[in-house]
Amino acid sequence: MPNTKTVVPFSATPEQMKALDAVIASHKGQPGATMPVLQEAQEIFGYLPEEVQLKVAEGLGLSLSEIYGVVSFYTQFSLNPKGKKQVAVCMGTACYVKGAGDILERIEKLIGCKAGSVTDDGMFSIDATRCIGACGLAPVILVDGDVYGNLVLDEVDGIIKKYMA
């Protein structure tokens, strides 16, 4: 799973930064503060860019390396923002046996980024998700909130291109 640093520049509103400060302040000095602070930080920003991790590290009196070690360990944390349009490919058992792997690969190629990351222009992000509970429609993907089920591989190009326009 590529979870490398994104090239999309970080921008935050003053409200977001204030919320982060409050989160850090409320956990500072507590044992085991790292996980809750990172979880709440991800809720604020949608992901955990370097700027946010450094602020958390300094705020909690830890090194950036320690914070990054935790972030890169858990799949729940993302180093990348979500794209303006999000693609989710269900990798649950039913979808997987019906060819979700090939579908994901095709989508990655079309969009030009890997699952778990975002395109350089910030337009698209791809996630390989766990079962989304629509096994009857397997294999299933979500594009920008729209559900596409009973997919065959050849339909993928047409669907994705609609959103690229």
């Binding site: 950036l64 070690g69 890169s72 180093l79």
Partner: peptide
């Protein structure tokens, strides 16, 4: 108390490196 290196990633991919490699 410098702590610029640590284990990154998980499982077989674990490696010792700096933050963000």
């Amino acid at each position: 108390s410098v702590g610029v290196i640590g284990p990154n990633d998980r499982g077989f991919a674990t490696h010792i490196s700096c933050a963000f490699d």
